[in-house]
Design a binder for these strands. Sequence first.
RNA 1: GGUACUCUGGCAGAACGGUUAUGCGUGAGCCUGCAAAGCUUAUACAAGGGGGUUCGACUCCCUCGGGUACCUCCA
Length: 462
Amino acid sequence: MKIQDTLSNLEQKLDTTNKIKIYLCGVTVYDESHIGHARTIIVFDVLRKFLESKGTEIELVQNFTDVDDKIINRANSENTTAEKISSRYIENYYRDFDKLNVKRATNYPKATEHIEDIIKFIEKLIEKQMAYPSKNGVYFSVSKFPEYGKLSKKKIDELQSGSRIGIDESKIDPLDFAVWKFSDVEPVWESPWGKGRPGWHIECSAMSVKYLGDNFDIHGGGRDLIFPHHENEIAQSEACTNSPFAKIWMHVGMVTIGGEKMSKSSGNTKSIKYVLENWGSNIIRLFCLSGHYSKVIDYSEEMLNENLTKWRQVETCYYELIHATSEKQEEVAENIKKISIEFDNALEDDFNTHLALSAFFQLVKETNRLAAEEKLGKSDSQIIKKEFERMLIILGLSIPEMTEDKKQEIDNLISDREKLRKEKQFEDADKIRDKLNEMNIELIDHKKRTIWMKKEKIKAEK
RNA sequence: GGUACUCUGGCAGAACGGUUAUGCGUGAGCCUGCAAAGCUUAUACAAGGGGGUUCGACUCCCUCGGGUACCUCCA
């Protein structure tokens, strides 16, 4: 598999024969997660599921930043503690992402639970004279790390002139960034240098090295983290361990809305909660995977609607497959194999989910065509279903299971309707159909038989 | 201002130095008692502007322009 690496700006080969270790920068838990967060995490979820489906073991570590000015501010404004705020939004995170059918990471380390590791990490940096304590905190000395800027392709001297945030006089160099900030206000921890809390970037360095080792395979996150966050992480980590940090840096493009970046600070976010309620997880996932991960995607109801149409085709495909009875056969295996290879090739080539989805929809179309022509044979449908389900799992799409009782009930109603139709009592037959519709069961009348499908209820539909 | 990414048909969105992906939408048709769903078929000669390299460029190079992101809040 090849993945475009931000650091080298080249496609890098990912060796999938051994375990793959991934560190993904998660969210700062001070507010509801939005579709932008969802995209990044869904991209990595599909990557992980794809690799796992190939038998590659994955260790995915994703942090929660649970100590940060924003959390503290929020706590102050709500008259509560930072801990309560962060634990509330961690809960909400799980609520949202479980619904989005994102497989839980191997580990979700929190900054506040790794203060000791962070302190040890800083101690090492000071020992190596890569960091120094000062009046307001402990700072990383950027000038001592000559490769600083290599990820974001920034030049140190240009950065200095561009830094416009109030310069802290206690820093030796304005570019130096805090690894430890002195403070007396909760949450604070004791450290060899004084009471305070960790800087933003240090947690990821300390925790990734702790869980994944000095070097690991993929470090991921949103594009907006390239600078300063990931730049600083590289500097700290490599300064500390003296070895190359992540092998591949994989950055996911932003979600925009009306062409503007979606972000909490611009107040133009669509929360996952809101979009889940209105569109559901399958449509969100299709939407998030509809473009190449590295590019911007623009959020709009129109696009979600387009994916709704597609989702209906997927549902139809599934129910056609499970209801296939035709004895006719068409040699389907070869074509399915072709589509399957196309799907895999797309993902192996810099994780092109758009092309993979094209392949998936080819399979859906092909199935629906066969069904429409009454050519979907039982054994063929088994072949297709196997592949369909494989793709469904990788993409993280899900069609809810129905209980046997429910299925029986539906079948009974359908045969009642059949009788009425034969007797040309269409009004009564339609009543049954309406009743089923109310249960979100849609009937598909084929020439000789009727099948049913359970349509996912989409609040935003029509 | 610097850096990166980006500009493809009404919309979304790929690939490749030579073949007008594909999906949505739209029109027509098939199926049906009627619908719905689905299917079939038709429909766009598209590449930000201008140069250049080439037998040939959407693809490579130059240049001009637009957009977005980042330049110590950010997924």
